[in-house]
Simulated scan of single mutants.
Amino acid sequence: MMKGLKKWRLFSLLAVMTVFLSACGEEYISTLTPAGKVGEHQYDLLMLSIIIMSIVVIVVSFLYLYAFAKFRRSRLGENYMPKQVEGSHTLEVIWAVIPIVLLLILAVPTLMATYEFGDVKAMDEVDEDGNKTALTVNVTAKLYWWEFEYPEQGIVTAQELVVPTNEKVYFNLKAADVKHSFWIPAIGGKIDNNVDNVNKFWLEFGKESEGLKDGVFYGKCAELCGPSHALMDFKVKTVDRAEFDQWVASMQATEGNTASVDSTDLGEATFAQSCLGCHAVSGVGVTGAMGPNLTTFGDRNRVAGFLEHNKENLENWITNPEEYKPGNLMTGKYAELSPEEISAVADYIMSLSVEK
Score class of each variant (00 low, 15 high):
Val120Trp: 00
Leu143Gln: 13
Gly87Asn: 04
Glu86Ser: 13
Gln84Cys: 12
Asp192Ile: 07
Val126Phe: 03
Asn194Asp: 15
Gly189Cys: 01
Trp95Asp: 07
Ala186Tyr: 08
Gly267Leu: 12
Arg72Leu: 08
Glu336Asp: 15
Lys37Gly: 06
Ile105Trp: 07
Ala222Gly: 00
Ala35Cys: 12
Lys7Gln: 10
Lys121Phe: 06
Leu65Asp: 10
Ile52Phe: 06
Pro292Gly: 05
Met47Glu: 02
Ser353Pro: 10
Glu40Ser: 12
Trp317Ile: 06
Thr33Gly: 00
Val163Pro: 02
Ala259Leu: 03
Glu323Met: 14
Glu340Thr: 09
Cys275His: 09
Leu203Asn: 01
Ala113Trp: 10
Ser353Phe: 04
Met2His: 12
Ile55Glu: 09
Met123Val: 03
Trp183Gln: 09
Lys213Asp: 14
Gly4Val: 12
Lys142Asn: 06
Ala335Ile: 14
Gly288Asp: 06
Val169Met: 02
Glu167Pro: 01
Ile187Ser: 00
Ser228Leu: 10
Lys190Tyr: 15
Leu46Tyr: 13
Phe62Pro: 05
Phe205His: 00
Lys179Gln: 14
His229Met: 15
Ala107Leu: 15
Lys70Met: 09
Met290Gln: 12
Phe11Gln: 10
Cys278Met: 06
Glu128Leu: 04
Glu340Val: 10
Ala15Lys: 01
Gln159Gly: 02
Glu167Asp: 00
His180Leu: 07
Pro164Gly: 01
Val303Leu: 09
Pro321Trp: 01
Thr33Pro: 02
Ile29Cys: 15
Glu149Arg: 12
Phe117Arg: 03
Gly277Asn: 01
Val57Asn: 08
Ala96Ser: 09
Thr254Arg: 04
Gln84Asn: 15
Ala134Leu: 01
Thr258Leu: 13
Tyr144Leu: 06
Lys70Gly: 00
Ser250Cys: 00
Asp214Ile: 03
Val56Gly: 14
Asn172Gln: 11
Ala96Ile: 04
Asn328Tyr: 07
Ile349Gln: 02
Phe205Leu: 00
Phe205Ala: 04
Tyr144Thr: 03
Lys37His: 07
Gly189Ala: 01
Glu355Lys: 14
Ala96Arg: 09
Ala289Ser: 10
Glu336Gly: 04
Tyr334Leu: 12
Lys235Gly: 11
Cys221Gly: 08
